[in-house]
Design a protein around this nucleic acid. Structure first.
Length: 570
RNA sequence: CGGGGUGUAGCGCAGCCUGGUAGCGCACCUGAAUGGGGUUCAGGUGGUCGCCGGUUCAAAUCCGGCCACCCCGACCA
């Protein structure tokens, strides 16, 4: 490709809309262009990267036994009512109305459509297992798109769906995909970690995410310093420290004027916050829920939401709390009636707690679970704490930020049951198909690759996904030696099946070198009068600073060897 | 949806407070010089100042409404 013909232009200044690094670099390199909030065009260079990622994913899916197909973007709205997932997706569903006033959904994911397809063709256990996938645009009306390509409303996703006869089959499919995913990230030159995850709106039980560790990542990952335990903070748990159990004493009222927060209460009484019970109020599908947790812990809303099986969970507003007759700052589960009470199991790991009294400026001491109050539900709903013990090995837990670049789910049978996807087993009994689904966002992966591979000059593409392999950079094009050598080299390298971006522009060396660095092409060949006098050409890796001279005669073969050995190394 | 911010040429910005019909840098076009890390000089193209309405002799500027985009929170590949 001749740079002079290339559509797109590099920018010296950072567009003001971008403050995420990958977003800035991709815009400056002329690889993407914003069309609306969370909606982007890919320009030729960006699209080349995307297609390389796509091809790697396709190869790994095929290798794992996947069959590629293509499902429509438009989906009947009724399908979402049938599957029961409409409420959990809610406003993130983009819907359109056709001329007959029928509602259609722009597919945010395709479990419904593919399950309906599969149920027509699968009647017997002999038709299974199946791994079906597609690479296609998805639409989600995200509440807040952000970070350029990191979180958008229209995005290209690879989604694979597995269909098995039993749990063992699902395990096999799941393992195949985990391996395929690991292969994909490593072939893209990226280091991803697999973490336990919550399955959210997709549904199902077991789920893992693949995270690229990056400061800008939206997700918090909890991992063990000692073993391989790693989980999204939404899912993570830590071993809770149990307090010394004392003989339960009788509840007593104490006066606590103007004392409201847990810290104030603990200070006032002279105990650590772990000796108090904290009350938090939520609205779960518009029902007020009273949550109790030990004072030194925080409520994990994802866990709470799963426990309550509700589709919308938020902190209750002050008016709602008042309307329920609760006293903010002194609310108590003791003697509370008519409100659902949910507790974290930490309230059993201690005794004689300080709690509210449901009276202003008053608290209770010596409050004990089960003797002084009861709850409707009790489970682990706490945020895992750093420094606490790992649930697997007792090592210390650490945290880091990550970008979610893949998510896999064991769906089980809830969708196949609702959508009537059954098969006959060996014994002639009708069974629901066991499903799994496995997604990768390609644009996000591309952006994450930039987040992980750049310096202050620009992008440093891993060889396997670089838009071009070689940046052919002649200096002083008015010198006929340089011009002729460059033209010939461009022909030779291209004929050798190497991907070359030929900077044939009459620009200053500074502009060319800076653009080469910004675009992040792995290998740069510089042709200059100076080096030509010695019958040689300069060669430089983007990620290194040394320049090497290579004899002109051998340049094509040496370049080819270099690139090949480099690709294998990845 | 709640909180904060921004909209002036393709990009980055100034002008707005104190109304008088738009300016700088980059990019782009022409010419000349230059030539190893965004080179210099000269000349030039490009804007209904986000939109609608109001005030005024006169609005980028003042007032009202709307819209778009970005950032922080509830969601996800």
């Amino acid at each position: 490709m001749r740079f002079s013909n290339l559509f797109g232009k590099t920018l010296k200044e950072i567009p003001s809309e971008a403050d995420t690094l990958s977003h800035q670099l991709l815009l400056r390199a002329g690889m993407i262009q914003q069309v609306a909030a969370g909606v982007y065009s890919y320009l030729p260079l960006g699209w080349r990267v995307l297609r390389k990622i796509e091809q790697i994913i396709r190869e790994e899916m095929d290798k794992a036994g996947g069959q590629e197909l293509m499902l429509p973007t438009l989906q009947p709205f009724e399908l979402w009512e049938e599957s029961g997932r409409y409420p959990s997706f809610g406003k993130t569903l983009f819907t359109v109305t056709d001329r007959r006033e029928h509602r259609l959904v722009l597919g945010p994911t395709h479990e419904e459509v593919i399950t309906e397809l599969v149920r027509r063709y699968v009647q017997s256990y002999r038709d299974l297992p199946l791994l079906l996938y597609q690479i296609q645009n998805k639409f989600r009306d995200e509440p807040r798109p952000r970070g350029g390509l990191l979180r958008v409303r229209e995005f290209i996703m690879k989604d694979l769906y597995s269909f098995d006869v039993d749990e063992a089959g699902l395990d096999t499919s799941y393992q195949k995909m985990l391996q395929a995913y690991k292969n994909i990230y490593s072939r893209c030159g990226l280091s991803a970690v697999m973490v336990e995850a919550d399955s959210g709106a997709i549904g199902g039980k077991e789920s893992h995410e693949f995270m690229l560790i990056a400061e800008t990542g939206e997700d918090e990952i909890i991992c063990c310093s000692n073993c391989d335990y790693a989980a999204n903070v939404e899912k993570a748990w830590s071993v809770k420290h149990e307090l010394e159990k004392k003989t339960p004493l009788t509840v007593e009222e104490i006066s606590t004027p103007n004392i409201k927060t847990i810290e104030e209460v603990a200070d006032f009484v002279g105990v650590p916050t772990s000796h108090t019970l904290k009350a938090v109020f939520y609205s779960a599908d518009d029902e007020l829920v009273f949550v109790v947790i030990r004072g030194d812990m925080e409520v994990n809303e994802t866990k709470l939401k799963n426990l309550l099986k509700c589709s919308e969970l938020r902190l209750a507003t002050e008016p709602e709390v008042k309307a329920a007759g609760l006293v903010a700052g002194s609310a108590s589960p003791v003697g509370l009636k008519g409100i659902k009470i949910v507790a974290d199991d930490s309230i059993t790991l201690g005794s004689n707690f300080i709690a509210g009294a449901n009276k202003p400026d008053t608290h209770l001491k010596n409050v004990n679970y089960s003797s002084d109050f009861n709850v409707d539900l009790i489970a682990d709903i706490a945020v895992a704490r750093l420094g606490d013990s790992c649930p697997k090995c007792n090592g210390k837990l650490l945290s880091s930020h990550g970008i979610e670049v893949g998510h896999v789910f064991k769906l089980g049978t809830f969708l196949s049951e609702r959508l009537m996807a059954y098969f006959l087993d060996r014994n002639g009994a009708s069974q629901p198909i066991i499903m799994g689904c496995y997604g990768i966002g390609l644009g996000r992966l591309l952006a994450a690759a930039v987040e992980q591979n750049h310096d202050d000059k620009g992008i440093i593409w891993p060889m396997t996904i670089a838009p071009y392999h070689i940046y052919l950079c002649p200096l002083r094009l008015e010198n006929s030696d340089v011009a002729e050598t460059a033209e010939k080299l461009y022909q030779d390298l291209t004929s050798a099946n190497l991907e070359v971006l030929f900077d044939d522009r009459d620009e200053s060396p500074g502009i060319k070198f800076n653009d080469a660095d910004l675009l992040g092409i792995p290998l740069r060949l510089t042709i200059s009068p100076r080096a030509l006098e010695n019958q040689s050409i300069e060669i430089k890796w983007r990620k290194e600073s040394q320049v090497q001279l290579v004899p002109l005669k051998e340049i094509t073969s040496i370049t080819k060897e270099l690139l090949e050995s480099h690709s294998e190394a990845v």
